[in-house]
Design a protein around this nucleic acid. Structure first.
Lengths: 146, 146
DNA sequence: CTACGAATTCAAGCCAACTTGAGGTCAAGC
DNA sequence: GCTTGACCTCAAGTTGGCTTGAATTCGTAG
């Protein structure tokens, strides 16, 4: 089996060595042993780091991420908590959908101010509602309708 | 027309007064005038704040958010940049889908370590790929398949 | 054997986004 | 006219997640 230097892990994942050391310090990942002073990582760490960066993209703290996938490689959280996290993410996905729609609308809308545009307002107000709702795409914008 | 005290804005949006003052300080929102010392906000600010919190959930900085929806109430970014932001968000949505699936899998999988579970590995590796890919739900987990 | 480059530790620094605290102001109700 | 409570300002502090820098240690190639 081949082990990885911190530099290789860094180039493969795009996460800087300093960050990786920090992750190890807080117990989020671990190196298997040292070669001289150098940490040697299992290739599996690449997968773990992918999860970590995804979790960060989702807005979770490193602490929460550790809970989800385990400091030791397996989650310390019970099943139902994990399911609730997943639900949280799904809700975030919904909100992001609204944000994306809103952004595209803003890009294309000709109205002088968004606040006066009913489409805009509908979109944003939608963000509070539950359930899947995305705009039908590409209705050509009419003047005065931003 | 009815104007809002900072406290009302806070309770309606769930954003603390201190944060709202900070937003005003950096020009992200504005109060219309003062009543004595007190800031008076237009009800429209509630919508704006909803956008701000959505943007934050998406992982954008306040700076970026200001660019999207405008410090002044309208975006300072050109159309194509906004569209690219929307694309960014869509990509993030895809990644969150993978994360959510992975999390549910982790919750239900009986394998001793995720790293040994092929389903898990497939899921995570999927996150790099382009295009819509979500797992079919609720295939009952077999033993040894985590 | 020596030099090189890639790693190491440790403390300190940095940034965004707020929060906290002390001390002050104001308007509405009694 | 006084109290009350919600607001105000301003400076300083906090948290998370790293980054930076100085001084040092290795292993390998020449």
């Amino acid at each position: 089996m081949k082990f990885l230097d911190i530099g290789e892990v860094a180039t493969e994942t795009g996460v800087k060595p300093s960050a990786l050391r920090y992750y190890e310090e807080i117990g989020l990942i671990e190196s298997l042993f040292r070669h001289g002073l150098r940490r040697q990582f299992s290739p599996d760490v690449l997968l773990q780091i992918k999860l970590i960066t995804m979790g960060q993209a989702a807005g979770f703290s490193l602490e929460e991420i550790a809970g989800m996938f385990g400091r030791n490689g397996r989650p310390d959280l019970p099943r139902d908590v994990l399911h609730r996290k997943a639900d949280e993410i799904d809700e975030k996905i919904r909100q992001l959908g609204v944000l994306s729609d809103t952004l595209r609308h803003v890009a294309d809308c000709k109205a002088p101010s968004h606040m006066e545009c009913p489409t805009f307002r509908r979109l944003v107000e939608l963000s509070g509602k539950r359930g899947r709702v995305r705009l039908k795409r590409k209705r050509p914008a009419a003047a005065g309708d931003s």
